[in-house]
């Protein structure tokens, strides 16, 4: 356990990342975007005109709207950032010709991988946790359970960790950061958009064959493509409303864990053999 934390790669990576200009620029932009969306969610919920003049506004409605807006927006933004921080971390060592120094030191491939992974994930967690005050705003309005909030954050961390491992795998495969980052974005696109499109096609066919079962929501095998969609566990956790039919968050978590483990194993194996990429 101590060796996991005292890995010199972690200190080196964090030191280098926090010296970059984007170290303070990105959190600033990230919080500005989230603050903007929270403001929009608040006014959209409380403005009677925007609600079509429907009755009184409950505090719980505002809390739920803010919570949903923040968790979805931050997932979108972090999905866009995860490849930037992970997919370039090994390729930059190749581009700067520093990887030979790492590979011929006494650092093992898992240690190199772990240092890169922790540094990439920690930066994303910095962003995620910096937005916690905005998320807890929803608790003040009500309508959101603290456990729900914890589950949402935990689910986001799991998805991000899984994507970081995929980014590192891409980074171990390619020689250039631009190629590995593009490959990682392609993977994110497949998970986020392609799975939703496949689900849409499957569910429309299912509904046409089972018009009476529509209210119960599609069965697990129809939802299966969505299990690897980064938004699925979040929507499943929220439950109720339009997302009540998404009821398999555990399956989704298990799949993301499996993706992460596989990508980590492939990446470590590739790092061990990256001498031929020099």
């Amino acid at each position: 356990m101590i060796r996991l934390v005292s890995n010199p790669m972690i200190l080196k990576e964090l030191r280098q990342r926090l010296r970059e200009r984007r170290a303070w620029l990105l959190p600033t932009l990230y919080l500005l975007v989230l603050a903007g969306t929270v403001s929009f969610a608040y006014y959209a919920t409380t403005d009677l005109e925007m609600r079509g003049g429907q009755g009184e506004v409950q505090g719980a409605d505002i809390g739920e709207a803010i919570f949903l807006t923040v968790v979805i927006t931050q997932m979108v933004v972090l999905l866009l950032m995860a490849p930037v921080f992970s997919a370039g971390s090994l390729t930059i060592e190749k581009e700067q010709r520093t990887i030979a120094g790492l590979l011929t030191s006494l650092l093992t491939a898992p240690q190199i991988w772990w240092g890169k992974f922790v540094a990439a994930l920690l930066y994303l967690l910095l962003l995620l946790f910096s937005a916690l005050p905005l998320l807890t705003l929803s608790l003040a309005f009500g309508g959101v359970d603290p456990v729900q909030l914890l589950k949402a954050v935990g689910s986001t961390v799991l998805v991000l960790a899984s994507l970081c491992t995929v980014g590192l795998w891409c980074s171990s495969m390619f020689r250039r950061s631009v190629h590995s980052t593009a490959a990682c974005y392609g993977f994110v696109l497949v998970l986020s958009i392609v799975t939703a499109v496949v689900f849409g096609i499957l569910v429309s066919q299912w509904e046409s064959h089972n018009p009476l079962a529509r209210a119960e929501g599609p069965p697990a095998y129809i939802q299966a493509p969505l299990f690897i969609n980064p938004f699925y566990p979040l929507l499943a956790l929220l439950g109720g409303g339009a997302f009540g039919q998404f009821s398999y968050p555990v399956s989704s978590w298990l799949l993301f864990t499996a993706i992460g483990c596989l990508a980590a194993a492939f990446a470590m194996r590739r790092i061990q053999r990256s001498g031929d990429q020099l």
């Binding site: 200190l11 280098q16 060592e93 700067q96 520093t98 030979a100 120094g101 030191s105």
Partner: peptide
């Protein structure tokens, strides 16, 4: 081992650079 085109971590201080490799060599 010193390769033909060896890179250095430009954004590290000289002492930090040596400290990192001292740790990497345990």
């Amino acid at each position: 081992y010193l390769p033909d085109v060896a890179g250095v971590y430009q954004d590290m201080r000289i002492r930090e650079f040596l400290e990192f490799f001292a740790d990497a060599y345990r």
